[in-house]
Amino acid sequence: MLYLALFQKSFQRMMTYRAATLAGIATNFFFGLLRAYLFIAVFEASGQAQIAGYSLKDAITFTALTQAIGMPIAILQWWWEVMRTIRSGEIVSDLTKPFHYFGFWLARDLGRAAFHFIFRGLPILLFFPLFFELRWPDSLAHWGLFLLSVLLAVLISFCWRFLINLSAFWFLDAMGIGRFAWLTMTFFSGFLVPVAFFPDWLRYVVNLTPMPAMVNTPIEVYLGIVQGTELWAALGSQLAWAVGMGLLCEWVYRRGVRRLIIQGG
């Protein structure tokens, strides 16, 4: 099947950057350690065993997990590919090919995300226990739910990036918009600090957006902070965001193509 092949090729393409992968693991690992020591100091200074429902062990696991899923969710590295093809006019050749445009990029992005999860994410989780004790999911089903939540987070992140990339249909230079979308993601998704730590008003506002569904939700699923009906509600809300944003992508794309003007040629 075409999309499966695209997924595979994208995965294999990533395999060729061996040195970059190793360097990336080292960098993510270092950042993970930095942030872990930061949270240790925060807990020490707060004089409390728990902050907003997180124990110190939870917070340290949070630092490892964010570094591990940061690449699959493309929060550590923004994605400009669609914007680039619109600007260069290469998009014309993609439009003439018999595939679903959104599906084409999604399949490729999932291939990239799968590679990053296995080769950039798992090593962080494997090496982190050399420095700190981590919390681990207590059953296979728990692991499964975490993986499902990560997959949904990747889908939402993809839709978000795809939408922002499509702004290039309307603006010749949408780099600023892209950079803004990317940098806001790192804070509002709960990547830097768990959303639970936010002041009430900010947490309320952030929860109206899809941001926490990209990082905060998978982490809370992993840590068991959401359980029972809350857990299903969290996964359900992720699914709703993924479907809703996917449909929005398709709609915006169709409108964008209608106004597409290819310059030069």
Partner: peptide
Amino acid sequence: SFIADFFATFIGMGLE
């Protein structure tokens, strides 16, 4: 694009 980039970086980096 310069102004857009300015505000994007200003607010974005400030969120750190």
